[in-house]
């Protein structure tokens, strides 16, 4: 559990982060969402002390991060950055193995762990001997994630991890990301400016603006219970798609009809996409849209 208490940071006397507090629970994915310059990256970097806060406290499992050696703190936190941050003079294998080498793991153990990770991240063996500049952007990002995962840290910080990728690669990685069981047991804080990514991956979202947190909540709470006009307006553009995405099969209570064909955790957007693709199930399509509209009415009431 990560607890952030009244933390502030100024750059050149201008507040970048202004008295913010939030909690990231065990095993949840918390998304820091906002436009550029809102202070989300600064907030993230204060957690592994790439930036030191001016005031306030950050606790990990109740322990103040400033009361331990900074290198030890960072060893316990996986970190993925936007431009992969791979070392250009190391091969892919050496890049992934940085932390185990620093921790003096046995080299057999390192090798088998690398093997395990690259398969989970859909990388091929022959990539290991190459240098970062010889890889595609998507491959680089996967290597960056492998490097952050190798030591099995309970916490993972991700700074716009998919920001530099094209749309198709990104949505591929998104779906892999959700199914990757390496991530299931981790507390993850993910920074993004991409609203649909936030809704796709986040269990909860912290919406930030001008160094302050405007609202923290689940995607549903953000859409159906916005605390003010800023929140409402922030999602106005994508609202319809977002609503379909946050509604699950189980929410519509159409068990009899739907559950034999669909996973109850699947979202309505994907269900309709599939039905739309084969035009035969027009009736089912209509049934679902009707049910969705009923459900929506209830939420907005």
């Amino acid at each position: 559990m990560i607890t952030v208490e009244s933390v502030s940071k100024n750059f050149n006397n201008l507040p970048a982060v202004d008295d913010i507090s939030f909690v990231a629970h065990e095993k949840e994915i918390l998304v820091l969402l906002g436009t550029s310059g809102c202070g989300k990256t600064t907030t993230l970097k204060m957690i592994n002390r790439l930036i030191d806060s001016d005031s306030g406290n950050i606790l990990i499992d109740g322990k103040n991060i400033k009361k331990q050696k900074v290198e030890e703190l960072r060893m316990g936190i996986g970190y993925v950055m936007q431009n992969s941050g791979l070392f250009p003079h190391y091969t892919v294998a050496e890049n992934i193995a940085v932390v185990p080498r620093l921790q003096k793991w046995d080299s057999k153990k390192i090798e088998s762990r690398i093997e395990e990770l690259i398969h989970k991240l859909h990388l091929s063996d022959e990539v290991l001997k190459r240098f970062p500049h010889e890889l595609s952007g998507g491959q680089q990002q996967r290597v960056g994630i492998a490097r952050a995962l190798i030591a099995n840290t309970p916490i993972l910080l991700m700074d716009e991890p998919f920001g530099a990728l094209d749309n198709i690669t990104r949505s591929d990685i998104h779906s892999e990301f959700k199914t990757l069981n390496e991530l299931k047991n981790k507390t993850i804080i993910l920074v993004t400016h991409d609203v649909s990514e936030a809704f796709e991956l986040g269990h909860r979202i912290c919406l930030m603006n001008k160094g302050k947190i405007i609202q923290t909540g689940t995607p549903k709470e953000m859409i159906y219970h916005p605390e003010n006009d800023f929140v409402k307006n922030f999602f106005a553009n994508n609202r319809l798609a977002l609503e379909y995405k946050i509604t699950k099969v189980e929410d519509l209570q159409l068990e009899n009809i739907l559950e034999k064909d669909f996973d109850k955790h699947e979202n309505i957007w994907n269900v309709l996409q599939n039905l739309n693709a084969n035009l035969e199930d027009v009736e089912l399509y209509n049934t679902i849209t009707t049910a969705f509209n009923e459900y929506r009415k209830k939420q907005l009431a």
């Binding site: 290198e71 060893m75 070392f87 940085v98 932390v99 620093l102």
Partner: peptide, 25 residues
Amino acid sequence: DNIIEAAKSLGMTKNQLLFKVELPL
């Protein structure tokens, strides 16, 4: 700077940063 930040985030000490990253590059 990105590379330096990556090295720090992995828990390298100042000396490790110097000998493993800065001097080689």
